[in-house]
Each structure stands twice: as C-alpha cells, then as structure tokens.
Simulated scan of single mutants.
Amino acid sequence: MASWVLKLLPRNGRSLATSAMKQGSEDYHRHLEAYGYFLPIQTRWQDNDQYCHVNNVVYYSYYDTIINHYLIRYCGLKTSLLASSLVGFMASNQCNFHSPISFPLIPVAALAVEKVGRSSVHYRLALFRPKSAPAQPVVEHQDLTDGFFSGHPKLAQFDTLACATGSAVHVFVSPATSRPVGLPDDFWKSLLRLKNPIAV
C-alpha cells in the first residue's frame, strides 16, 4: 500500500492498514519462494534443550552460518584479519519461532537480501523442516560446500512453510579503524543476486 494512501486514512485505519501490511509481509517471508539461497544444517545432539527441541539461541547460530557461508563462498569474504579489507559487524538480528525442530533433523536454512547499502546489508532468513517422511533429506558433500539456489530440485524434500523466520543487519567496517567501509563492486553484485524481487 502506498504511503500517500496511508496518510489519507484516519489514524485507527492507518494502524490497521500498517498491521495488515506487516502481517502480509511476515506471511510471505514464511514461504520457500521468498528466498534465493539455501544451505542444509545438520542439527547436533547438544542443540537440544531439556524440552527435547533445539534451543532458541541455537537458531541464531544457524542463521550466522548461512550468512557467512554465502559471504565466503560467493562474495569472496576473507576471514583472516591480515588478508581482509573489511569485516562484518552484526548490528541487529531477530528470530520468530513458528514450530519446533529437534536433533537429528536436517533442516535447510534460507537466505534473502532485502537491502544493500554502501556499507550495510539487510538479510531475511528462515529455516525449513524436512518433509515428514521415513528418511531424512539426501544431503551430499556438494550441498554443504556450495549450498543451492532457488529452484533446485532438492528443495522438494523440505516443507514450503518455515518453522522459523528472522532478519539480520551487517555493517562492514575496516579492520584497522572499525569505521564503515564501502562494499567492493563484486561483493555488492553477489549480494544483489539474492535481492528479494517481490516487495510486500
């Protein structure tokens, strides 16, 4: 809904329209097609808590894993402070839980890019359970090395509705000064590959 339309609505109407837009966006972000890059995640025994499901804080490590996997594999991020001209500082992150998972499930993490600034990146994230089946998804070494992109046939092994969704913001800085630094062109273009084409 355009912002000028919201301004024409009475205050309570604006609030309801904004809530509806936010709800529509959240519903969309639970769907598999909202994401461009995927990485299988092997849950670990230690991820489970006393309630026999993956503890809430562990989801953040899954999100951190897919973000950094993509940055290293496809954007050329160097992980050595001696070799890197930029490092990513996490400015914010957030997770919404929709349904639990537990070890030994192998869910797939999902990544989209909502916005790329001069020195910052806004990510959208999700986690999708494997479909209910006698066997776990077939995960090969290549899947863990490269991940896979939207449209890959292996995505058919996973639910189309996320069990968790989230967001994160990276600010890239110079390792020498900790001041924001502009993203290199190739880095920027690789991030734009995951730019969400549908705005809600």
Rank of each mutant, 00 (worst) to 15 (best):
T65W: 05
K7V: 14
A109P: 03
F158V: 06
L192A: 00
N68G: 06
L39S: 13
L111Q: 01
M1C: 06
M90E: 14
P10W: 10
H29G: 01
L86S: 04
A110M: 06
L9Q: 13
Y37P: 03
P100C: 04
R124N: 09
F149G: 12
L191H: 03
N96L: 07
S167M: 03
F103E: 06
D64Y: 06
Y62W: 11
F172Y: 13
W45V: 00
R118P: 03
F97E: 00
S190C: 11
Y63G: 06
R193G: 03
S190Q: 07
V113C: 07
V121W: 01
A110H: 04
N48W: 01
Y74C: 13
V200P: 05
L191D: 02
E140C: 15
C75T: 06
D47E: 02
A168Q: 04
V57I: 05
Y60S: 12
P134A: 02
R11T: 09
L155W: 08
R129D: 02
E114V: 12
H31Q: 13
L82P: 08
D47R: 01
S3H: 10
Q42C: 15
A135N: 14
S19T: 12
S84V: 11
P137C: 11
E33C: 12
H122P: 04
D143F: 10
R44M: 03
D27F: 02
V57K: 00
F103L: 02
P104A: 09
D64K: 07
S119P: 04
Y35I: 15
A109Q: 04
Q142L: 15
V200C: 04
N55W: 03
N196Y: 05
D64F: 09
S15G: 11
P184A: 03
V169I: 15
K22G: 03
K7S: 14
S15P: 06
Y123M: 07
D49M: 02
T43Q: 01
V108K: 09
A110C: 10
D143Y: 07
I66R: 02
A109T: 08
C95T: 11
T65S: 15
N48G: 06
N96W: 01
N68Y: 07
